[in-house]
Amino acid sequence: MSNKNLFLKSGFLRAPLQNGVGRYVCQLQRIVLKFCKSNGSSRGIRDYIEQDLVEFAEQNPGVVVYLKPRRHRAPIVVGEYLNGDRVWMSMHNKTHSEITKWIEVLRTQQGDVAATRLRKYQSTDHPSIQGPWTPFTFKLPELNTATLPNVKYGENNRLAPSATEQLRRLFEKQKLDEKDLKTAE
């Protein structure tokens, strides 16, 4: 494990259960647009506020939109999600169309999953009460005390002959039958 994981928060990967099965619940709870009214680096976000913000708010009634003007500061967008995650993005010198795309990205994701060190890579909604499967789950208990190699537990003794082996036997039998016919004539 590398050192970069030391500074990431650790957690489990939990998607909202069955989100979208009955109805979709947008995971973005609130979005804060911080910008300067006069700074040139905030021009793109000011254009977005003037042209598209009202339409965004009408299309997403479950998302609370805050505008926070700040003097002589670079513009940023902060998205807060239902699971408690906060995603901070700098919009310094971004155009109106780039800001539109990034806000759409914030709207459609479910938090900052990339900045989480996963403690467990598998998860399920219905865990097994029998325990996890292992390669030894269905092995005979007698194998624990047997001295190996043992002819009784050999894999080749339990397996049926393969298709290649059956074809070889048929071919040998056919050769023998042909020899018997030639000797009989």
Score class of each variant (00 low, 15 high):
154 G>L: 10
112 D>M: 05
93 N>R: 15
146 A>G: 00
110 Q>G: 15
131 G>R: 07
91 M>N: 06
161 P>A: 07
94 K>T: 02
149 P>A: 08
87 V>A: 14
156 N>T: 15
181 L>V: 10
119 R>C: 15
109 Q>G: 05
100 T>S: 15
159 L>Y: 00
162 S>W: 03
175 K>Y: 02
159 L>V: 03
147 T>W: 00
117 R>E: 07
163 A>W: 01
183 T>H: 12
141 P>R: 01
128 S>F: 05
157 N>P: 01
107 R>G: 06
125 D>L: 14
126 H>S: 07
116 T>K: 06
135 P>N: 09
140 L>S: 15
94 K>N: 09
141 P>L: 01
179 K>P: 01
167 L>V: 06
142 E>L: 02
110 Q>A: 14
114 A>F: 02
164 T>K: 10
159 L>A: 13
117 R>Q: 12
146 A>K: 00
167 L>Y: 10
115 A>H: 06
153 Y>I: 07
124 T>W: 03
86 R>I: 04
161 P>M: 06
137 T>W: 00
177 D>W: 09
100 T>N: 12
158 R>A: 15
134 T>L: 03
159 L>P: 00
96 H>V: 11
145 T>I: 03
153 Y>S: 05
177 D>F: 08
86 R>G: 01
86 R>V: 02
160 A>I: 01
101 K>D: 07
102 W>D: 10
145 T>A: 02
183 T>K: 15
129 I>M: 11
179 K>V: 07
96 H>R: 15
139 K>Q: 13
99 I>R: 02
128 S>Q: 06
140 L>H: 08
102 W>C: 03
172 E>K: 11
167 L>I: 11
106 L>T: 08
119 R>I: 14
132 P>Q: 10
145 T>Q: 01
125 D>R: 11
95 T>M: 04
169 R>H: 08
148 L>G: 11
167 L>S: 11
139 K>R: 10
113 V>D: 07
112 D>F: 02
166 Q>F: 13
88 W>T: 06
145 T>L: 02
121 Y>N: 06
177 D>N: 12
89 M>D: 08
123 S>L: 08
134 T>N: 07
91 M>P: 05
130 Q>V: 04
183 T>M: 09
147 T>G: 02
92 H>I: 06
104 E>I: 05
173 K>F: 01
106 L>M: 07
86 R>Q: 05
162 S>E: 00
153 Y>K: 11
169 R>K: 13
165 E>T: 09
118 L>P: 01
123 S>G: 08
123 S>V: 12
169 R>G: 04
